[in-house]
Design a protein around this nucleic acid. Structure first.
Lengths: 192, 192
DNA sequence: AAGCGCATGTAAAAGGTTACATGATTAC
DNA sequence: GTAATCATGTAACCTTTTACATGCGCTT
């Protein structure tokens, strides 16, 4: 079960599968979006890239731009695509925010049905988590224990938001029956 | 800056500061609430406890219960409280969900004003993050690039929920001027 | 000329996860 | 009696972080 251990490896693989990128590009990208999963530092990123090369899952093209420092553009190989698919296909262990968000970032590599299955799995996980949190909250309330009230309240708020998002996203996915891109008409809840 | 490195150490310290607990208790507790921060495994928990003992930040009392296996109840020492306070006082680096959630769990060890400052800091971080995400979303939209639409949408939904929660919690805190416990009259947004 | 953004990397150290290991009690 | 829960721990392995290191080009 090296599912979560080797996460960065497959996250990178998924990113270069969608668009060939350099290590620097990957850092930029994850720096913007990596709030939930934490963006990797050089010390983990570059070794990971080299391992992908060694394992034949990726190739490099060096882009020598006259004036600027050269870039190493990494692309995925056929073997890489297979490995990536294999990783994506294995079901996510419940409860890991990180694992879920990663699959979401790699949503383009998922088939429509797998994406839906993944979201449904998450919805059920979140529901279970909500139930557990409410149980804990009830127990604490019963003993008059107000410790961790804030943390519980916060966790519940996040869980509720996630569930709302999952519901509306799944609804959107089931409506857009045939749309090619898959994620076109999703209602982007964009208040504020 | 060993702020995030030694996180588990201080999380444990904060938990036993509020209530003396055994290693097993800590795992139970974090298993319920640890969705956002990930609950530690035995392999990290017990060594961490021993290090706390070695460093004089905690003490043990062995609870020999006739019929059940003995429990080692850990309590915080004076030195431990100082160390914990020192850790809590140092400002959180922006953008780390984990760091924030931990402080939230340890909210009882924070003074009221520090708690408020911490929440305000987080609110500003979240706002900055929202702005960045919208920037990325706009850029992708401009290039007709629908990749990562889902991930962005999800991240925005979570950020929005967090901000709403922060706003209402801060409002609650500013209203309950003198309440001793600090977290009594907080409106627990408990729909669904 | 100094500093920042680009772009890549390395080495040491710390930390965590996995898996193994133990042993008693309670419930089926 | 056999499984599950309670309760603690160890050791190998792997990742990741931190910090250091380099070098070019552009801007002030």
């Amino acid at each position: 079960m090296a599912a979560s251990r080797v996460s960065l490896r497959y996250l990178i693989l998924g990113l270069i599968a969608e668009d060939p990128m350099s290590g620097y590009d990957i850092r930029q990208f994850l720096g913007n979006l990596g709030w939930l999963i934490g963006s990797p530092s050089c010390g983990s990123l570059y070794p990971a890239l080299r391992r992908l090369l060694q394992d034949g899952l990726a190739t490099v093209d060096i882009d020598l731009r006259e004036t600027k420092p050269p870039k190493k553009i990494y692309s995925i190989t056929e073997a890489g695509r297979n490995a990536l698919q294999g990783w994506i296909d294995q079901p996510t262990l419940p409860g890991s925010l990180k694992a879920f968000t990663m699959r979401l970032i790699l949503a383009n590599s998922l088939s429509r049905s797998r994406l839906i299955a993944h979201l449904q799995q998450r919805r059920s996980d979140v529901a279970a988590h909500q139930a557990r949190l409410r149980g804990v909250a009830g127990a604490l309330h019963a003993t008059g224990d107000s410790k961790q009230h804030l943390a519980l309240d916060y966790a519940l708020a996040v869980a509720r938001a996630e569930r709302t998002w999952l519901d509306s996203t799944l609804e959107g996915l089931s409506q857009t029956g045939e749309v090619a891109g898959g994620a076109h008409r999703l209602r982007s809840t964009d208040a504020l």
